[in-house]
């Protein structure tokens, strides 16, 4: 047998040698390079690719009576006659979802669907949504939570500034401020411009009139859902899309409720009556462009 095969070999020699050399050459070159190339990469699971838009950018705009808000100037007046200026505005929106005309509802997953806006931080005025699983198609509305839902509003979830500095003390319900709208106001009879901290977050129920943390008997979730209609809005495959969410500042004070600054101790974070009023007005504060 052995001999035979050898003879066989000998006959085939010239051709087989070329083949063998090529074969070895290929193996020597290709196998290591294949292994080398693949060894450092994470294996990627094949994913199903749905048609989806490219980056979606949400812009945040802040206006008073239709004009871009100007900070630190005493140029605005509420229906009760309070003149006010806005100094700082910082807030969270979360659980952003697009509602498709076909009935689908798709939640943005970027950043756990939380966005922090601070008028002092220009980059925060845009939210670039990239990792989302948005699909192509027509949407008839967009919705979000103003602030953070009870589930999302966990203390110490933000350890880094600027979000960290929104923390809402544990004694007062914990988690984070939904919004800090710092302003100064003055009525015609007041001598001086006074600060007002229009802050929203988890409310407290107090036993009696005290605002002592010892007399807290319960907490109130003051976040609310906002749903804004879209018309003719379509996500097209591979295309960028921009959407502007506008906060109409004046509506915090004049809406379903008329907000009277003088009724509160220069702030409302320990005054659920004030915060719930603010929340009721808040439902109509946003519009979409």
């Amino acid at each position: 047998m052995k001999k035979n095969s050898q003879t066989h070999y000998e006959i085939q020699r010239p051709a087989s040698n070329v083949l063998r050399l090529t074969f070895h050459f290929l193996i020597f070159l290709l196998l290591p390079s294949f292994l080398l190339l693949s060894s450092c990469q994470k294996t990627e699971k094949p994913t199903v690719v749905y048609p989806s838009p490219d980056t979606v950018t949400i812009c945040f705009e802040h206006t008073v009576s239709g004009n871009p808000m100007i900070t630190d100037s005493l140029i605005y007046t509420t229906s009760l006659g309070y003149h006010y200026m806005v100094n700082d505005l910082q807030y969270f929106i979360s659980d952003l979802a697009f509602h498709y005309t076909n009935g689908n509802e798709i939640f943005v997953t970027d950043n756990d669907s939380i966005h922090y806006t601070d008028i002092g931080i220009p980059t925060s005025l845009k939210w670039n949504i990239i990792k989302s699983h948005l699909r192509t198609g027509y949407c008839d509305s967009v919705s979000f939570i103003f602030g953070l839902s009870e589930k999302k509003n966990r203390s110490k979830r933000f350890l880094n500034p600027p979000e960290r500095d929104m923390f809402w003390p544990e004694f007062l319900g914990g988690g984070y401020h939904y919004m800090k709208l710092n302003l100064k106001y003055k009525s015609d009879t007041m001598m001086m411009l006074m600060p007002f901290m229009f802050h929203m977050g988890i409310g407290q129920i107090y036993n009696g009139t005290s605002t002592n943390a010892d007399s807290i008997t319960g907490y109130v979730q003051n976040y609310f859902k906002v749903r804004l209609p879209l018309s003719g809005f379509k996500f097209e495959e591979g295309k960028k899309k921009t959407l502007t969410i506008r906060m109409n500042i004046e509506k915090w004070f004049d809406g379903t409720e008329t907000f009277d600054f003088s009724k509160y101790a220069m702030g409302i974070m320990q005054n659920e009556e004030g915060m719930s009023k603010a929340a009721r007005n808040g439902e109509n504060v946003f519009s979409i462009q």
């Binding site: 203390s155 500095d165 809402w168 003390p169 544990e170 802050h199 943390a213 702030g267 320990q270």
Partner: peptide
């Protein structure tokens, strides 16, 4: 606490 000494808005605290 805001109606207490209200230091935390600038000086931090539990968060």
């Amino acid at each position: 606490t805001e109606q207490g000494a209200d230091c935390f808005h600038c000086h931090g605290g539990d968060g």
